[in-house]
């Protein structure tokens, strides 16, 4: 049985510094995703070492904010950042490869930003 998630907190200003520190410590980035709920919005970064140790960092953001990219430290972060940009509408400056919104071909831009709360009104299931 897996334990509940524990995260440490990081803010926009200290993000790139933290990533550099972790890279010196031989951690690698394994995932980056955005969570948007009715009340809050945040990003989770996960880093891992070769002996399976893992740390998670949480960064609170608001919609439409501009964030720094960590692809100067970890090149493969650009794929995750493009996905976050495309689905949630967060601007990220300085990505190594910038797809400019064409990563996934969706009918609506920023498709995950309109949250439908199933408790609010009668939502049809289909």
């Amino acid at each position: 049985m897996f334990e509940r998630l524990e995260t440490k907190s990081v803010d926009k200003a200290g993000l790139v510094e933290k990533a550099k520190e972790l890279r010196q410590d031989s951690y690698r980035l394994i995932q980056l995703h955005c969570v948007k709920t009715v009340t809050e919005m945040f990003l989770i970064y996960s880093f891992e070492k070769m002996d399976y140790e893992v740390v998670h960092y949480r960064m609170d953001v608001t919609e439409g904010e501009t964030l720094p990219s960590i692809s100067s430290v970890y090149t493969h972060a650009c794929l995750y950042e493009n996905e976050t940009n495309e689905l949630f509408g967060l601007n990220i400056s300085g990505m190594a490869i910038d797809f400019k919104g064409t990563f996934y071909e969706t009918a609506k831009n920023h498709a995950f930003t309109d949250i439908v709360n199933p408790q609010d009104k009668k939502v049809s299931k289909s």
Partner: peptide
């Protein structure tokens, strides 16, 4: 919230779920 790492045939897969006490998950 919970985050799980498992081994798929192709490598490491990560699942994350967040819930708020109702029957529907938030993420």
């Amino acid at each position: 919230e919970c985050l799980v790492r498992m081994e798929q045939p192709r490598g490491q897969v990560i699942y994350y779920a967040k819930a708020n006490g109702t029957r529907h998950l938030e993420r």
